[in-house]
């Protein structure tokens, strides 16, 4: 059973959202704002309904790039972090380049990638990967370094090998950090995919949702732009929620961040 305070806590944001939407609709109606300037929420919803299936198909294309990029970023990020954990020299050699990739704006690199990588899907994936990759490397590397000193001594005392240390000590210690990185990267991968689509323009035979938004913009179909935006925002929230759930699932038995509060 939820208490009254808990109900209010859940209701309050929903209520605020409804108020804003109602105010927006009222503003558009009373001022007779044309829908190519600012469509009301009802017009957006109607577009969403009408064009839903075609927009969803486009969203699926973007989602595919996003998830593939996140997967590749996770694999490469963890691998690189594990490599860095092997020696301070490797870390010192690699980290500047990881930072270099991170701080260079993706919008600036994307045109180059699109020129060099001919296959559109791969080009988009590369862009999204560059954005999603850094938080995973940085967090996992920090996590691998954060293993308890006493436990490190214990592993040394019992003569644990490199792999045992990595598997039984470093990796579990890094897990919460890795998952925090994953939650950040999930959102970033989507951003990376969208930016890449914007830059790539038409992406071959299949077009993603970002390109549809761009296209709708050229044709002044503003309600469609909003509809695409709503879908993108919902997707971002969905990705975050899924990763947060996954993270809680893995940590709920032991990590402070996922334990129930003391009663």
């Amino acid at each position: 059973m939820l208490t009254r305070a808990a109900w209010l806590g859940r209701l309050a944001p929903a209520l605020l959202g409804l108020l804003v939407i109602a105010g927006w609709e009222a503003l558009v109606r009373f001022n007779d704002i044309p829908s190519y300037v600012l469509p009301g929420p009802l017009a957006v919803a109607e577009t969403l309904w009408r064009e839903g299936s075609s927009l969803l198909a486009a969203l699926l294309v973007t989602l595919r790039v996003t998830l593939a990029a996140l997967l590749v970023a996770t694999l490469t990020g963890v691998l690189l972090a594990a490599l860095m954990a092997q020696s301070a020299w490797i870390e010192r050699s690699l980290m500047p380049y990881a930072v270099f990739l991170q701080v260079t704006p993706i919008v600036a690199i994307a045109p180059l990638i699109i020129i060099y990588v001919e296959q559109p899907f791969l080009a988009l994936l590369a862009c999204a990967w560059i954005v999603a990759f850094f938080p995973l490397v940085a967090n996992t590397a920090a996590g691998l370094r954060s293993a308890d000193r006493g436990l490190q001594d214990l592993f040394r005392l019992y003569g644990a090998g490199r792999l045992q240390r990595l598997r039984l000590l470093l990796w579990p210690s890094a897990l919460p950090h890795f998952l925090a990185g994953l939650r950040i990267s999930g959102g970033l991968a989507l951003i990376g995919a969208v930016v890449a689509e914007f830059v790539a323009g038409t992406g071959g035979s299949e077009t993603g949702i970002a390109f549809r938004i761009l296209e709708a913009g050229y044709r002044l179909q503003v309600p469609k732009m909003f509809a695409g935006l709503v879908l993108l925002a919902l997707t971002g929230i969905g990705i975050y929620a899924a990763l947060a759930w996954f993270s809680r699932l893995l940590l709920r038995r032991w990590h402070e961040s996922a334990l129930p509060p003391r009663s």
């Binding site: 308890d148 006493g150 436990l151 214990l154 592993f155 019992y158 003569g159 644990a160 045992q164 039984l168 000590l169 579990p172 897990l175 038995r253 032991w254 990590h255």
Partner: peptide, 21 residues
């Protein structure tokens, strides 16, 4: 300090030296 692995239960923690072996 007890220096236990928080991700393992009591059994896992006591088992650790044998596991390493």
């Amino acid at each position: 300090d007890p220096t236990l692995m928080p991700w393992g239960d009591v059994f896992d923690n006591v088992y650790l030296p044998l596991r390493i072996a």
